[in-house]
Design a protein around this nucleic acid. Structure first.
Lengths: 233, 233
DNA sequence: GAAACGCATAAGGTACGACGAATTCAAGGG
DNA sequence: CCCTTGAATTCGTCGTACCTTATGCGTTTC
């Protein structure tokens, strides 16, 4: 599941990255490459490559005569899937989950609207197939199967929107949905109302009804927000 | 402006990154580290660091006995500001601008709604200040001044939403607005209707009217979509 | 005494060379 | 025809040496 094992520098990242995103090193903390190399028992070359990656994520900044400085949270590339995974794995998980769910609630309705207009016939068919899969696994402790189809459903919507930026959020949505099922409050069986909404959404996309697709998706995301107690007073 | 000059590996990236995002090397193309190092006249160490960064952006994949393989566009981290900048600088610019504008149209209304509820008093004040700045420079060939306030305006909205994911899109919006003004079709003076909308939006946020803020922002983003001939039939 | 200058030093930046490891591909044998 | 085996190739890792530069402090100067 994780990106681990892609070489020594990957191992270092899997250890150092989460430490930083977890706030273990406050913004402004200074690390030295040699010290880190020693700590992780790798050569300086490997450590430098790891630092370069962290730098490209704007988690740290490397400066001469100073060292590797941890950047403030506001600078981080919070859209980097790796960063998202690291934050979801740490104590920042609840906040990250909220941020991502709000993002979903903004993006998915528009994506659904676009999907209703631009989806291919195959995509429309796949969408209904996913909805059926959700229905079939909506009762009887088949959460994993349900989750699988749920993730696939939202992935199809985002991809079918025809917008590359939306499509790339498929992994994010997958993480959110997976996280919700496995770690957080998830009742024994999914909410029947949510299942129905997905079925109706698949129908709307099939019927090329953009406004209905958008509206239904909005209902779905509102449900997701409510689960996390993110309300609109 | 660019991230250039931060070492040799940065120079290499500034040259190689845009080449890849421009599609100069089709997906599946294989590059060899040594060859690249020779071409850019840098040591293998530097080249490896550059490749690591490209790898973290999912632009390429490095495998033993094979080389550095260019990944298909669908794998790229299109939310990486660096990647966005590279693509905006290349021939993919129009498509990138459309994708980003659609993203804006999805995110900003929700962000404005949240900003109306969660903004601090300082942020509300700054917002009206930006709107006034836009009005003051809305006529008489003062496009740069107008742009400055426009960017600041949208940045405040995104930041005031309280959502870190939204806040990080400030740079993206800045790029889009700047690009629109400098390179693309931009009439001598900004559309007066758009200016009015910004003023009313600032008022709505000031009045904590979330639904009106969302609605007004939707009008603004619809305008942005229309400018790029992205219609909703 | 304060400000400007300049040097020593500590950290990252770059280069090169050697070896190890893994994967692809082809040759050989069953 | 398939499986095994080995050789070639490319990245992966390491270590060392040297360069570059920014910081911090001591010195000089007004």
């Amino acid at each position: 599941m994780s990106t681990t094992g892609r070489g020594l520098h990957g191992r270092v990242l899997d250890s150092l990255g989460p430490s930083i995103t977890a706030g273990e090193y406050p913004a402004g903390s200074v690390l030295r490459t040699d010290e880190l190399a020693q700590r992780f028992e790798v050569s300086r070359s490997v450590m430098r490559e790891a630092v370069r990656v962290l730098e490209s994520m704007h988690l740290v900044e490397s400066r001469r005569r100073v060292g590797v400085t941890v950047l403030p949270e506001r600078e981080w590339n919070v859209y980097d899937p790796q960063v998202i995974r690291w934050r979801l794995a740490g104590c920042e998980r609840p906040r990250q989950l909220r941020s991502l769910t709000v993002l979903r609630s903004a993006v998915e309705p528009v994506a659904a609207s676009l999907a209703a207009r631009h989806a291919t016939d195959e995509q429309r068919a796949e969408l209904t197939a996913c909805a059926l899969g959700m229905v079939a696994n909506s009762s009887g402790h088949k959460l994993d199967q349900y989750l699988f189809h749920d993730v696939a459903f939202h992935r199809v919507i985002l991809t079918a929107s025809g917008n590359e930026m939306f499509a790339r959020l498929g992994d994010v949505v997958a993480e959110v949905l997976t996280g919700r099922t496995h770690h957080d409050v998830m009742f024994e069986d999914p909410d029947p109302a949510a299942v129905t909404l997905h079925v109706r959404l698949a129908e709307a996309v099939r019927a090329r009804d953009a406004v209905r697709a958008e509206s239904l998706t909005r209902e779905i995301t509102v449900g997701a927000l409510q689960e996390l107690d993110i309300l609109a007073p």
